[in-house]
């Protein structure tokens, strides 16, 4: 049952992912991408990571995609000119397929060992996913966490400086 549900959602994710690449209009691409994000959020829930699912929707589908849509509409972009589209499809597709084949080969060759760490379904149910993430983040990964915040600050400043009309 769960597997069937997985296949269904996976199919939706792949189709919408394909549409992201395929659609002529950037707006359509963006909508498809949001769809993919939702599918991924579903997978996160299935993987017992509800906090990640939540921020997937909040950050990606909410913040980043809205920003992208804003820019698309701000610049009033239409579909790209057709004559320029098929320029290097063959090469790009070939490269993509090669990557795919290689990863498949990789998956078949290797074996996921499944070394069990301390995090189990019961633990997550007992303590709560958010709290577990928060604890790890603010103990073991405190320094990267702070650095990430500085990175975001720099990005904000950079974006303002770049997008400002007059320096």
């Amino acid at each position: 049952m769960e597997l069937l549900f997985f296949y269904l959602v996976a199919l939706i994710a792949v189709i919408s992912g394909f549409l992201v690449v395929k659609c002529q209009s950037p707006v359509n691409s963006a909508i498809s991408l949001v769809m993919t994000f939702f599918c991924l959020a579903v997978f996160y829930v299935m993987l017992h990571a509800p906090f990640m699912a939540a921020i997937q929707i909040l950050v990606y589908a909410g913040a980043i995609m809205v920003l992208i849509l804003f820019v698309i509409m701000l610049l009033n972009l239409g579909a790209e000119a057709n004559k320029r589209y098929a320029h290097s499809v063959a090469g790009g597709a070939l490269a993509g397929v090669v990557v795919l084949l290689m990863v498949f080969y990789f998956l078949r060759q290797g074996e996921a060992t499944g070394m069990k760490g301390p995090i189990s379904t019961e633990l997550i149910a007992q303590i709560g996913h958010t709290e577990l993430i928060g604890r790890t983040m603010l103990t073991d990964f405190l320094l990267p966490f702070e650095i990430a915040s500085i990175l975001l600050l720099v990005a904000i400043v950079g974006a303002i400086v770049l997008a400002k009309k007059e320096v």
Binding site: V21, G96, L100, V103
Partner: peptide, 29 residues
Amino acid sequence: YHYLTLSAILFSMGTIGVLTRRNAIVIFM
């Protein structure tokens, strides 16, 4: 393995998109 396979498919599609599209925003997506 299911998840990793799906991840590989999505990743390859992203790669193809980056390599074939010309619109910078689509590439970005």
